[in-house]
Amino acid sequence: MKHPVATSAGEGSRARLKARLAIAVVVALAGVAWWLQPAWLYGWLKVLHLVAVISWMVGLFYLPRLFVYHADAEPGGESAQTFVIMEGRLIKVIMNPAMMVSWVVGLWLAWNGFGLAGAWLWVKIAAVAGLTVFHVFLSRSARRFAKGENRMTARQWRMANEIPTVLMILAIIMVVIKPFA
């Protein structure tokens, strides 16, 4: 049985146009705020950074969990096709934008707030780089799943699910405790 398309081509086209318009407005407003440097900017960028990091982490936790179930699904079956759609949308709509915002805003905050100085900050950046490597690994794995070429068992995906947890804990310790300050 073939899955019905969730949205028509016209609806998808309109959604892309709205998304591009929203991105253009946000980028323009960000440019104006960056240029004017109002006193409230740093605080609001910290809020944006936290929201983006939380969104990204949700994806980094959820995608391997989807892979656990996908690995057990019959290749090419209806549930496997549903997982392919879910995984692709999670990466494209949530994880990729959240990762990019996390990096861009986080680096600006690190530069503007700390002058990119402090061993704790570089350890945190290294942890975030590790999360990025894991993100890329998950994205490539999703493409392999879509082709029916998964290389890991459900148990291995369960174990891989711990990687972002360890890296997140390291990053949080660096930001909150600043052990090398």
Rank of each mutant, 00 (worst) to 15 (best):
R20D: 04
T7D: 15
L48S: 02
W40P: 04
R158H: 06
A160C: 14
Q156Y: 13
T7N: 10
L121H: 15
M86I: 12
F134V: 14
I173E: 00
S13A: 09
W40Q: 08
A6Y: 15
M152P: 12
S13Q: 05
Y42E: 12
V136D: 10
V93I: 15
G76N: 05
A117M: 14
V27R: 06
Y62C: 12
H3Y: 14
P64H: 01
A98S: 02
L48C: 03
T82I: 07
V26N: 05
E149K: 01
P164N: 13
L131Y: 06
M152G: 06
A181M: 10
V51C: 09
T7V: 15
V136M: 02
K147G: 13
V104A: 13
P38N: 07
V104S: 12
N112S: 10
K147I: 02
A28F: 01
M95Y: 00
L41R: 12
R140W: 00
R14F: 04
V27I: 09
G88M: 02
L45M: 06
F83G: 06
V26A: 04
W120G: 02
P164Y: 11
V27D: 05
M57N: 06
L41D: 10
R20P: 03
L45N: 07
G59Q: 05
P179F: 00
M159C: 14
L21F: 11
V166T: 13
R158C: 09
E74P: 11
Y42T: 15
E11W: 14
Y62M: 11
V104W: 13
V25I: 01
S13G: 15
W111G: 08
Q37A: 05
V104I: 05
A129V: 03
R65D: 04
L45Q: 06
V5Q: 13
A39W: 07
R89M: 10
A146R: 07
I85Y: 04
W56R: 06
V32M: 11
P38G: 10
A30D: 09
V101P: 07
F61N: 03
V136K: 07
Y42A: 10
I172F: 01
V136H: 15
A154S: 10
A39V: 06
M86A: 08
I94S: 12
L21W: 04
L60D: 14
V47Q: 05
V101M: 00
A110I: 01
A52E: 00
Y62P: 11
R14E: 03
V51A: 03
W35N: 04
M100S: 14
A19S: 15
V25Y: 06
A15C: 09
W157C: 11
A19V: 09
P179L: 05
V84I: 14
L48V: 14
I163N: 09
W34H: 11
V84P: 13
L90H: 11
M99P: 00
L60V: 08
P97T: 01
K2W: 10
A171L: 06
V25L: 03
K46C: 13
M57D: 05
N112T: 07
L66A: 01
